[in-house]
């Protein structure tokens, strides 16, 4: 495993853990989109179906379980915890995320590495991950609130995307048969969407003003 991949995994892990720890500690999820968090939970659940069929390494298995557990915990806190769920911006978090799931499923049925249940679910998880940040973007735009989304969370997710792209480039040039078009293209789309988020975050931070996304 190369250093880019490892750093990508670690920053991804910390982004989820920082969010979970923050919700757990301050008993608030203001500014966090439940829709995005639910989409991430679906992404992990559908991608890691291979936990039951393929063993890669102890590292992979443990990381998959931690990602699944922490993202499900975030959803649990936001839906069920009596204090946390009171702080949820329900009226603002109106992005209809079901309309993202269906197109991703159709795309996965059409474009996949092999037409089997596992492969379709795997492709679906990648397409869904690419667009899962959208409800969070819409919520930010509505509330114009960056105080509650910590700088760390934004920074860690951005670092995760960047390291994974460096990892793909590195592996493409150092390994034989390493080609994953579906992963690369959906990963690139995700990074571009995220870059947009990043740009406006830093812009508003630099000018010391509240976040203004273009309408």
């Amino acid at each position: 495993m190369n250093m880019f991949r490892f750093l990508g995994d670690m920053t991804h892990l910390f982004s989820v853990l920082v969010l979970l720890l923050k919700i757990h500690t301050i008993k608030s999820c203001a500014g966090i989109s439940l829709k995005t968090q639910e989409l991430y939970a679906i992404v992990f659940a559908t991608r890691y179906l291979d936990l039951f069929t393929d063993y890669i390494s102890l590292y992979n298995t443990v990381m998959k379980l931690v990602y699944l557990g922490s993202s499900l915990s975030i959803v649990w806190y936001m839906r069920r915890h009596k204090l946390v769920r009171r702080s949820y911006d329900k009226d603002q978090d109106t992005f209809r995320h079901h309309f993202l799931i269906l197109p991703c499923l159709i795309l996965a049925l059409l474009i996949n590495e092999k037409f089997t249940f596992m492969e379709v679910m795997w492709a679906f998880s990648l397409y869904l991950e690419a667009v899962a940040i959208l409800p969070q973007l819409v919520l930010l735009q509505r509330t114009r609130n960056i105080d509650n989304l910590t700088g760390q969370y934004v920074f860690l997710l951005g670092a995760y995307r960047s390291f994974y792209i460096l990892n793909w480039i590195y592996r493409y040039f150092t390994e034989v048969h390493y080609v994953h078009w579906i992963t690369w293209i959906s990963g690139l789309v995700q990074t571009l969407l995220y870059g947009d988020f990043f740009y406006y975050y830093f812009h508003s931070w630099k000018n010391n003003e509240k976040l203004q996304l273009p309408a």
Binding site: D9, H12, D54, N60, M63, K64, H177
Partner: peptide
């Protein structure tokens, strides 16, 4: 025959 790369990333 095309060789399939294992899905070893997260």
């Amino acid at each position: 025959k095309e060789q399939k790369h294992p899905k070893d990333e997260l």
